[in-house]
């Protein structure tokens, strides 16, 4: 019994160390890699432009719902004036970075894990290595660098459209003065909150894109399946673990920052 606990602990520690090495190696290998900028732009497209519609749609609806729910709760205390505070702080501190990260994982992270898994399967990654090209620098590093830049932008866009959504449901649907809402927003948000939002988003980006790349890249190490099934298994694992790690990291960062 104790041996089982010990073995699982060791394997978790081993996996964490392997993941950290994977990230570290990718960044180190990217130094001086040619045409890195081009590949970062492509990764920026995958995580940025291609995820933009879903971010905007989900952001707007999140704001709308927050506005609606918040209004009914605050109405009971006669404090509708605080709607802006509620919507803006929920969005900036938690929902913006977390939901934006989850949306990008769903759209770009799963695609990345599957793509790398197939490239591993069809020996494209081995081919890079035989050419003396670092597959970490070529395939992984641009995605990681892009994620550090793209996630904060996506979180900011999410928050911005969310605030607009909140004001729509507050002022247009429920008759709250639009000025009351926006002045509450401006009063409530501190530069600390904004910094926290961007820091969270960047950390989520590194963790989720790192995890998706890690699982896709190591699809051949999947013990339960081979071939196409290994790709699907590692893609599933990448998405599930990314979602868990976003929420876990959110809790850790929040408890450290607040």
């Amino acid at each position: 019994m104790l041996r089982i606990v010990g073995r699982h602990t060791l394997s978790i520690v081993h996996a964490l160390g392997d993941f950290a090495l994977f990230i570290g190696r990718s960044f180190r290998a990217s130094v001086g890699s040619r045409k890195l900028g081009r590949r970062i732009v492509r990764a920026g497209f995958e995580q940025g432009a291609r995820c933009l519609p879903v971010i905007l749609i989900v952001g707007t609806f999140t704001g709308l719902v927050l506005g609606l729910q918040g209004y009914y709760v605050l109405n009971k205390f006669g404090s509708e004036g605080l709607l802006g505070t509620l919507v803006s702080l929920s969005l900036i501190r938690e929902m913006g970075p977390v939901l934006a990260a989850l949306m990008i994982v769903g759209q770009a992270g799963s695609a990345l894990a599957a793509e790398l898994g197939i490239q591993r399967n069809s020996e494209q990654i081995a081919a890079l290595e035989t050419m003396g090209v670092s597959s970490h620098a070529f395939l992984v590093a641009p995605r990681l660098i892009a994620s550090l830049l793209v996630y904060p932008m996506q979180a900011a866009l999410f928050v911005t459209v969310g605030l607009v959504g909140g004001s729509l449901s507050g002022s247009v649907l429920l008759g709250l003065e639009s000025g009351t809402y926006w002045s509450a927003v401006e009063r409530a948000v501190e530069s600390q909150d904004v910094r926290e939002c961007f820091a969270k988003a960047a950390v989520f980006g590194l963790l989720t894109i790192g995890l998706c790349a890690y699982h896709g890249f190591n699809a051949h190490r999947c013990r339960s399946a081979t071939g196409a099934q290994a790709v699907s298994a590692s893609t599933t694992r990448a998405v599930v673990q990314s979602c868990i790690i976003v929420l876990a990291a959110d809790y850790v960062i929040t408890s450290f920052l607040v």
């Binding site: 490239q119 069809s122 020996e123 494209q124 081995a126 081919a127 035989t130």
Partner: peptide
């Protein structure tokens, strides 16, 4: 190295 599967990108 020329792979059996070609391993083209």
């Amino acid at each position: 190295f020329l792979f059996q599967s070609n391993a083209l990108f």
